[in-house]
Structure formats: structure tokens, C-alpha cells
Design a protein around this nucleic acid. Sequence first.
DNA 1: AAAACGGGGGC
DNA 2: GCCCCAGTTTT
Length: 214
Amino acid sequence: MTNIDKVILQMMQVMLQNKLPAIDRIEEESHDPFKVLVGTLLSARTKDETTDAVCRRLFKRVSSYHDLKHLSLIELEELIKPIGFYHTKARHLQRLPHVLEERFAGIIPRTIEELILLPGVGRKTANLVLVIAFKIPAVCVDTHVHRIMNRLGYVSTKTSLETEMALRGKLPVKHWLVFNSCFVSYGQHVCLPRNPRCNECRIFSECERVGVNR
DNA sequence: AAAACGGGGGC
DNA sequence: GCCCCAGTTTT
């Protein structure tokens, strides 16, 4: 077993032991692809609680992409206000229904190559939509995954794409649904961006403690 | 490769 | 005040 396999296994064990909420949420939530897409898109650089609150409010007004066509930019901004980068994201939501209709016949696509053509959707968001909405195994590299892999020395680049490729084939057979959540969880509680709690870390024996992306 | 986009919450 | 928040787009 290589070093990276052991690290992933340990992070997953830590998460499963602590019964972190992400597990239940991913497995039990309703998974309307449109709502998953919107929620995931809005969640960028924003706390989950904030995103959840906004989504609950937003989905009372918007239940399909058709509803987005009837909202002005100002209205959209007001609806998603507390979320980070709300102006940019409101513009993305405004363009979303048109791109969906013109390029995908109104159907949320199921491949990453197609998903990243949607406004505001990059590789991380696209992969997360595959995982949550379609239950398709995928590695989505957010800042936590990227930072942890860099500190471990498993990758040596600044690009998250190379990290994603490096982790392909490392998806566990059993709990692959929460593979990404393990990195997020460990990144939030122990392997923090600026001030990691290295004294609490029992995973990395060879850690470079590299600061990456905050 | 770097900058710009950003309000909100915790300590 | 500093840190942190499951990034994407444009320079």
C-alpha cells in the first residue's frame, strides 16, 4: 500500500468515526439535478450553512431553469445576497437557462466536458454535480484537496487539474461518495490553510506544510 | 500565473 | 483585525 492510499484511508476513518453530517446529507437529500447544479454553483467560497439557507429561499421562487428566465439581475442578486460573489453568480444564473436550452435542450448534461460549458461551472463544480446528482464516481479538487495533496508532497504543481488526474484511480470502492468530503472535513478541522493544527494531526508523517490557496 | 470577485461569521 | 468559507473567470 502506497503512502497516499494510507492517508486517504485514515482521513475516511476519521470522518466516519466523527459521523460528520456530510455523509447523511449526500445520501439522503433530494437530488434534482437542476437544484444540485445551482446549489453547488452557489456554494463556491461560501459556508455550507449560508448556501443552504439561500437555497431554501431561492427554491421557493425557482423550481426549474424556466423560472430563472423571469427574474431580473437585481431580483437574483437580492435572492442570493448573503452568498459570496453574489453579483457574478447572479449573472451566471441569468445566463444558465439560455445556455441549457441552446446547447443541451434543457437537460443537465452528465459529462464533465459538457458541464463545464455552463456559466459559472468549473471542474470542481462539474465533478461535484456528477457525484451528488448522478451518483457518478468523480474526484473534485477544491482548495482542501489541492492543499492537502500539496502538503503531503503527492503533487508538486499549482494546477488543480493535475491533482485531479493524480487522484484518479484512488477513489475507494466502498465509500467513494464521501471521498471528497474526507478532504474537506480534514482540511477544515485539522489541515487548515494558514494555521494548520499539526499537533492534532495523526496522518501526515512527511508533511511539507506548504501554504496553498490561502 | 496572477488578479478580481465579496458578503458573512468566528474569535 | 485576521482567518476562513467544498472556485470561476478574466487579465
